[in-house]
């Protein structure tokens, strides 16, 4: 076989594997979207009819809406705090050399390779014991703390990639021109790191928004979208849950696309 023919064959087989894999990734997502259109009460095929009825039910359902509100609230605070802490850790790791740096890296990144359910349980024990001493219960606040612990390492890794490709002489130049530390950050460092910080923040938001394991352990009686859906699966569900799932997909897809577009633009101008 000629080299060119061989090349074509490799290309074709890799693209076919990719196509099959993408189909595999989207099977459950498409299935949920399809089932949200079922008119009848049960999640079985064939459908009794096609309608958007369950979307209407969704927006009239109190528990579903409060789950949506809780998810947003938790994701909002978890995103802000983990983005700030993770960004600072990324700068510390890439731009400074100091004693105990590898220990710092290991400590700051440890939750990455820790099963989420176990992290949730370990934190639940911690907050339960602390709560008994100090008199508080698990709820939204403990869930936010749990999310921050889990998500901050992700932010650190994503922002670190951006810090690597950043020339520290730009900061020195600004300092030579008389900028103070704060001004250097405000006008040089932050704007240049912004694409990385922005996509890390989006990643953080989505990780928190869709988190099941940690919320399940730490949110007490508060329900978020994933835990609400989980309880629904157990009870024997109606198309309300697929409808809710479909509503949740939309902002996720928009945010991921926005982050990718921003990244591409910044890499083109750089």
């Amino acid at each position: 076989m000629t080299a060119r023919g061989q090349d074509r064959l490799i290309d074709i087989s890799l693209y076919s594997v990719m196509a099959v894999m993408l189909l595999f990734f989207y099977i459950p997502i498409f299935t949920l979207m399809a089932f949200s259109l079922q008119e009848g009460r049960y999640l079985t095929l064939p459908f009794e009819g096609i309608s958007l009825k369950w979307y209407g039910e969704l927006f009239n359902s109190g528990p579903a809406l409060s789950a949506l509100r809780n998810s947003t609230l938790i994701a909002f605070f978890a995103t802000i705090v983990s983005t700030v802490i993770g960004t600072m850790a990324a700068i510390a790791v890439v731009r400074y050399r100091f004693r105990g740096k590898s220990a710092f890296q290991a400590l700051a990144g440890a939750p990455l390779a820790f099963p989420q359910l176990l992290l949730g349980i370990v934190l639940l024990l911690w907050f339960s014991v602390l709560g008994r001493w100090l008199g508080f219960n698990t709820g939204v606040v403990t869930a936010i703390i749990g999310h921050i612990v889990y998500i901050t390492p992700f932010v650190m890794v994503i922002v670190a990639v951006q810090v690597y490709s950043f020339d520290p002489q730009l900061e020195d130049a600004a300092r030579d021109c008389g900028a103070n530390t704060w001004e250097v950050y405000r006008y040089v460092t932050i704007p240049l790191l912004w694409p990385g910080i922005f996509s890390a923040a989006i990643f953080a938001f989505l990780l928190s928004w869709g988190n099941f394991y940690i919320t399940y352990s730490l949110a007490g009686s508060t329900r978020t979208i994933p835990t609400f859906i989980f309880s629904g699966i157990a009870v024997g569900s109606s198309p309300l849950y697929p409808a809710m799932a479909t509503v949740v997909f939309v902002p996720g897809l928009l945010l991921v696309t926005a982050a990718a577009a921003l990244r591409r633009r910044s890499s083109r101008t750089a």
Partner: peptide
Amino acid sequence: ITDATLKTFG
């Protein structure tokens, strides 16, 4: 990034 609970349910 889509929530694992939803995909598992799917």
